[in-house]
Design a protein around this nucleic acid. Structure first.
Lengths: 211, 211
DNA sequence: TAAATATTGACCACAGTGGTCTACATGTGT
DNA sequence: ACACATGTAGACCACTGTGGTCAATATTTA
């Protein structure tokens, strides 16, 4: 299908993919512009349609590209990280959030594209894409929630609700962190500071929810 | 400036405003289409430019319209709601979240437009708009955080961090609720169920953070 | 050197743009 | 009944941008 494109020098390939991902993250399919994509990718208009049959073909390629990439990179990492956290849900969610943050730093285009994808009407996506997304979400969910040690929680609280509250708390901190980092330059010293602060919140959560 | 528009029958006025708000919530200023606005508002193209000088003029009008509306409707309600909650931060945040949800149900177009507004680069907005937004945010912040009774919290926890954790927890629940309500028809019975559940979460939060 | 392949961007027919203006409908005061 | 002001629609304008093509070239390969 895309032999010509796959045979390309990987730098050039990446540049085209990133330009396209950025365009499709910013505009929905209809309003995304192949002209802007080729301009940002630094290639002539003709090449895009030499590699891909159509705009739709490119879009479909990108969906599979991102899903496969996330799958191959995230699942194994998540597996080992969660294994280390054992049955401690707070630790589990912490390492998950941290992995997510790191991935967002490494591959922002992939991340943003996937974010905009799942915001769309799920039913409009091709079946194979829907299936891949479902599989991925199911796997992540299983890893996070299977064999949690509920005995860590205080006896007199509803542990199911407590799990949600922990989740929302850490999601909230993460969102705030993202917002902060948008404003300033990302200096790794600051970053360490933030992760330290994260850890303090973690300890507070353990203090109030665990016995 | 817009005498002709203001003199309009209020139903017609509202229909135009809502069509425009929806368009500007969906697309950024450049890609919003006056053609779609007049089509959705059910008026001829000429009328829009009879009421407003230009697309930009309409956009500016909408920003002021929404800010004034939110200001006049929210601030007083928030004031009395928070007074009832006294120094109890968890109660304060609960009533705030509830007000926000109710407003979103009543005026979704205004709400969505404002959401998309503040996601933009703040610096690009006109100065008077920036000022209005700042005033509004400051007032809401003051109402929420002034004279909180910190003695309600357990002694051995960092109350500043606890405030954030409570905030993130309730934000998280609210977001999940919104997502759920998008899927199904909004039946007021369900809605009651959700607010009851919200209250259970509230009690759990009080149990773990308050002494 | 010739053939094969990679690459470009001018070009196409067309869709959509913000905004104008003419022609007509409706109302108002006499 | 009429004249005049105001309200309204949408055809129309010049223009920008669209996805996609293709003939012309540059580059690689044999």
């Amino acid at each position: 299908m895309h032999e010509k494109f796959e045979q390309l020098d990987s730098n050039k390939k990446l540049k085209i993919i990133e330009a396209a991902l950025e365009e499709f993250s910013t505009y929905d399919f209809q309003h995304a512009s192949t002209n802007r994509i080729v301009k940002n990718a630094g290639i002539g208009k003709g090449m895009l349609f030499y590699y891909f049959n159509s705009k739709k073909d490119l879009y479909t390629y990108l969906m599979h590209y991102c899903l496969d990439r996330i799958y191959s990179q995230m699942v194994s990492q998540l597996e080992t990280a969660i294994q280390e956290a054992k049955g401690d849900f707070i630790e589990r969610y912490y390492v998950t959030a941290r992995l997510k943050s790191e991935y967002m730093g490494e591959e922002p285009h992939v991340f943003n594209f996937m974010s905009s994808l799942i915001l769309q009407d799920f039913a409009e996506l091709p079946n194979d894409i829907q299936q891949k997304v479902n599989t991925l979400q199911q796997q992540a969910y299983d890893l996070l929630y299977k064999d949690i040690d509920l005995s860590l929680f205080k006896n007199d609280i509803d542990s199911e609700k407590a799990l949600n509250l922990v989740k929302w708390s850490l999601d909230g901190y993460q969102q705030e962190l993202e917002q902060k980092l948008k404003g300033e330059q990302i200096i790794s010293i600051n970053l360490k500071e933030y992760w330290d602060e994260f850890y303090e919140y973690l300890n507070l959560l353990k203090k109030v929810y665990y016995q």
